[in-house]
Design a protein around this nucleic acid. Structure first.
Lengths: 338, 338
DNA sequence: CTGAAAGCGCTAACAC
DNA sequence: GTGTTAGCGCTTTCAG
């Protein structure tokens, strides 16, 4: 920058002003500086800038997903795409931090504390996940993907999150199955330490308040887990005529087990999934009827919420219209499996 | 750090030494400083450190994949997992930079030039991709995922890359099909502007040098594209009795089209995929026989190669044992489709 | 509207 | 061994 200023015949201060928007600099000089910047191929040193501005132009995305689900369910990638788009539209970088084992919590915690990012996006929170507390401790604004509250989690109350209408979506699914005349409707849930699984189960129960508990089996959001749960259900309730799976991935596993058991889908057993992940739902045999949630849009919303917080440093004092959580709608996509 | 030093009764310099390993400091003082750090909850400011050391402890992963494949093929996620593991084992952060449209090339280029990272991992390079040149221009060491060379790409000659043995893998697939007695073996290729597609096609041709060109159709690595290519092939060569698809995702699309056309797999048409992405290959109907490449390992290798370059600043002058490209092996995984 | 000067928080020679 | 000193490259009051 020294040399840019020199070449343009101005001081470093003026050069700096131009580089950062050029407000309050005579148009003539502004041009001169811009020219010098181009000619010298000057690029500002971010570290130096951060040192004084205390801003990084970067936000961290922390994904705490030790399960193999992360790498078998495109859910995650779609989310990321939404986030990345929104962030880069605002010229912010996305840093992906993966947490795979206990040790990583520390590493990521240190990284966040190190002041390399301006805010944090948190994902796949399981019960009693320490990340929100960590983010709060180091004073970084954050937004959570998926409703984080567990009964009694006092401290989590006023944090901002984005989630889809899991409960409503589940109701849609069961409703549809019922309208098809199905009477023995089973469900395969996700891991019950995640609110999304819980909410979907609640939606199922909303419509089947007196349901047979044997019709409920827990999976883990993987095709494998879905298959295992399906096998359990079949053993317990051979007379079931429909299944609502808590994710498309699990539904695909269930489909396979049903096929192997000689049950025709949808004739003998109707199947509905959840997510509408194109690469799974459209390609199973038969193609999956499922509950659609706009995952990419959820990602965009998370990023937007965080950016708003960053732009407007509303401390807890003068919060007038603090960003608030949002629930995105779900709807049914009918294909061939139900 | 000022206050840490004060509290420990030492100078800032000594405090700094302790924080950075504590070599050459009396054990007694070292303890004192450590204590002060803990008590004050001190965390070093990375920006300041970077400013002077010129090191970030971070490497960028640039994924130039405008196609929707990125978000429908777990290939990518597995790669990332490998990279992330290797990087964090060496206490380096991974920054994910996605390139989706032309505009993004500039944004990412600026970011790299800004000096926020120590090195770059490049992915999914298409023909004449400008990223390697950009990385070279800003002077960042980089490693490429997938063989980048195109005929005549002089400047790309001596860059380091990690790739799997695509050609050998394809040969394995065709070999297997032939050993099953198949005589009309078709292939669905990936986009032919990527070397991985080209190499797999070459492997196919190695074993079928006089093959009927009508038995070759181009897909795009998506299930959809695979389906379209399969339909084409069926129209052109109704007598085909086997298909080698250049990816599991394309194979899944092909399977669907085959099913709809009333062809039984593997009885009428045997199908072999490529990748062995568990979430696809194990869950298709029938489960896919495919060529396995250890994607996560490839990611780890890329990271390791880059880290070695960073650790050992071998300029082009004294290169004794410069890191060199590596090709990982492939092998056949037999399931039910062939 | 522009320039001079004072740091941001840390590390690395260099003396002691 | 340890402290002193000089910056790393940039932004930003504060005068002019």
């Amino acid at each position: 920058m020294e040399s840019v200023a020199e070449r343009a015949g101005v001081s470093r201060a003026t050069a700096s002003r131009v580089v950062n928007g050029g407000a309050g600099v005579r148009a003539e000089l502004r041009e001169k500086v811009r020219l010098a910047v181009d000619e010298l191929g000057y690029v500002p040193n971010l570290a130096a800038r951060t040192l004084v501005t205390r801003r990084n132009g970067a936000v961290a995305v922390v994904v705490a997903e030790p399960e193999s689900r992360l790498f078998s369910d495109p859910f995650f990638a779609q989310h990321l795409r939404g986030i990345s788009r929104e962030l880069s539209a605002a010229d912010n970088q996305m840093l992906l931090l993966l947490i795979e084992d206990q040790r990583d919590y520390d590493r990521v915690g240190r990284y966040l504390a190190g002041g390399h990012v301006d805010g944090v996006l948190l994902f796949s929170l399981h019960h009693a996940d320490p990340m929100p507390e960590t983010a709060r401790r180091v004073g970084l604004p954050f937004v959570v993907g998926g409703r984080p509250g567990w009964p009694g989690a006092e401290s989590e109350r006023d944090l901002v999150y984005v989630d889809s209408d899991n409960r409503g979506g589940a109701r849609l699914a069961v409703q549809h199955l019922r309208s098809l005349g199905r009477r023995r409707i089973a469900t395969i849930t996700g891991p019950l330490d995640q609110t999304s699984s819980l909410d979907r189960l609640d939606g199922y129960r909303d419509l089947l308040p007196d349901g047979d508990p044997d019709l409920i089996a827990e999976g883990d959001f993987t095709p494998d887990g879905g298959g295992r749960a399906m096998a359990e259900l079949l053993a317990r309730c051979p007379d079931l005529d429909a299944v609502f799976a808590g994710s498309d991935a699990m539904a695909s596993g269930a489909l396979k087990v049903l096929r192997e058991a000689g049950r025709r889908v949808p004739e003998d057993v109707a199947v509905v999934g959840f997510d509408d992940v194109e690469s799974i739902a459209a390609w199973t045999d038969p193609p999956l009827t499922t509950v659609r949630q706009d995952i990419e849009e959820m990602g965009r919303l998370m990023a937007r919420l965080l950016l708003r917080r960053l732009a407007d440093p509303t401390t807890s004092a003068t919060r007038v219209a603090a960003p608030t959580s949002v629930i995105t709608p779900t709807h049914l996509v009918i294909r061939a499996s139900a």
